[in-house]
Write a protein that binds this DNA or RNA. Structure first.
Lengths: 322, 322
DNA sequence: GTGAAAGCGCTAACAC
DNA sequence: GTGTTAGCGCTTTCAC
């Protein structure tokens, strides 16, 4: 493994110049710069990140903390982060908390001192702890907003409204809401917008696990509540609702319409294909990474709220005549 | 941020002793060890990974290269890797190649010099390049085998046989195989086992993209070929086949039985729920990480071939009478 | 614009 | 067991 030292010797310059040629090309004469670049290329020079980080006092790694990597939602965000980070020559350290707040704390303490910035997808960590973490280094929150901190989130309220208007236009007047984890920020956002559309009565089915099984569990409650349509916390839940409904012999959307949230790939594969509020997850990963890069220079911590879009597929239809 | 130096001073020992107390506790007297641990705890000491790596000459990071993080297959492997790595106090650097071999090469060159070991999920990279990478540092291949290199893969042949036997027992005699990417190692493994079950005629539908859309594209060919059952390259493809079949008005499993590979979460959500060959993906992540740790000490590069299991659900049934 | 020199925080001989 | 002493490979003042 060639070192910068060796590159410098090969190029006939000092290590300092070699370093500058690579990191601040503008500060080196064009001729020497070329010599250094050529030598680096020829020797197959690869910077030693540990050395760079140690010497400069800042890490080029980005830490990404997610509750569950196997969840397509977070996996997609992670993919976006990854892509953007690579463009900025930074690497991504991912940590999966397995939905466990205790593990999350531990990971935070472990990870944060060793990364240049942290991307936190943490729907459940108490706000003061998030704020605390932000004092320890650059931090961007994803899918949540905390006053005074940089974040990337989605305009879920308008998504909820769009879904409700869509159902209303189809003649639905009694819509069940299947909630997610009670402590989740984004569940609260969804709930807050539930009353925004007049003429649609909302039946709260309560909080459920944000996975397929949660929807399965909720389906019977929906039927019992006499709703003709459902808005679910996310697609996984919506898919769960749909499969249980179908298993009970009910038709979607003939008997009950179903709307999800997120637009994970499975939403379009399902049959019927799921009508859902699409969140630009990859884009969120991009934005969050970009935000992180500009965080020191930014005056106030920026908050990006990404627009969402209702994707109408086949799981919604006219309300059944009573 | 407290340094080891400061911890050492606070504990009244030399930096070396402080270092040993933390990394090789056995080599320090019990009393001093306690003093160091206590001081570290009290000062909130966090080791600087860059410094550790630079000084010791080896990185504690694990590099994980996957073709697509948003693919539930790789996301699940990644989760397994992550969990195991954290147990060993190592962090995971993930890189997503976006299914692009050129990007993969670049990532390899970038990543490998800066990690202590590499986990490669790379179905398509030419074998000699994989072998080449292995000379540059500890490397474990996942879901593929290359002679002489450490790897974790699945016993897909027995999975194919189990699927075929299952179909045969249901009376199917003409089974279509929807292949994956032609250059993929695991597609070749599946194909190699296709002839192992006598009494079942295999119709090769050719290679398709290993995603939902690939299955959609293949479905019509299956019908045209007159097969009563399909074995697909993976679940995504199987799901695609199923949705196209259903859209054409065919019944699964009434008219055609479908079997997938992998057992991703969506397989159990689908309706009908997909019969599939389950691969222990999380386990593969664990094993690969464990293998990486023991690689230097191992005599011969270990090859782990994980057992698979046919999960019979609702997408397979008796062959339709001709 | 360039080089010399001083570390960044830690580990690993090497002596004791 | 323990301390002393060198660095690991790089960035970054500081002079020139």
């Amino acid at each position: 493994m060639a070192t910068l030292q060796e590159v410098a010797v090969a190029a006939g310059v000092s290590p300092a110049t070699a370093s500058r040629a690579l990191s601040t090309p503008a500060s080196v004469s064009i001729e020497r710069r070329h010599r250094v670049l050529e030598a680096a290329e020829r020797l197959g020079y690869r910077p030693n990140r540990s050395a760079q980080d140690l010497a400069s006092g800042r890490s080029r790694h980005i830490g990404l903390v997610v509750p569950d990597l196997a969840n397509p939602y977070f996996a997609t965000v992670a993919k976006g982060v990854q892509a953007q980070a690579r463009g900025a020559h930074r690497s991504v350290l991912v940590a999966d908390t397995d939905e466990d707040v205790r593990a999350e704390r531990e990971i935070l303490g472990d990870l944060q001192p060793n990364v240049g910035g942290l991307l936190l997808c943490s729907p459940r960590l108490p706000e003061d702890e998030v704020r605390d973490a932000a004092t320890r280094g650059p931090l961007v929150i994803v899918n949540r907003e905390v006053a005074g901190l940089a974040s990337v989130s989605f305009d879920v309220a308008s998504g909820v409204r769009a879904a409700l208007e869509h159902l209303k236009a189809l003649g639905h007047t009694r819509v069940a809401y299947v909630g997610g984890p009670a402590s989740s920020w984004s569940d609260a956002r969804r709930r807050a917008a539930l009353g925004d559309v007049s003429g649609v009565e909302i039946v709260d089915i309560g909080g459920h696990r944000p996975i397929h099984q949660g929807g399965v569990a909720a389906a019977d409650l929906i039927v019992a509540a006499g709703a003709t349509a459902v808005l679910a916390y996310n697609d996984l839940v919506a898919l769960g609702v749909m499969s249980r409904l179908t298993a009970r012999g009910l038709d979607v959307p003939g008997d009950i319409s179903v709307v999800g949230f997120d637009d994970i790939p499975a939403a379009s594969y399902a049959s019927p294909a799921l009508t859902t509020v699409a969140l630009p997850l990859t884009r969120a990963g991009h934005e969050a990474t970009t935000l992180l890069d500009g965080l020191d220079t930014a005056a106030a911590p920026p908050t990006v709220r990404l627009a969402v879009e209702l994707v109408v597929r086949d799981s919604t239809g006219p309300a059944a005549r009573p």
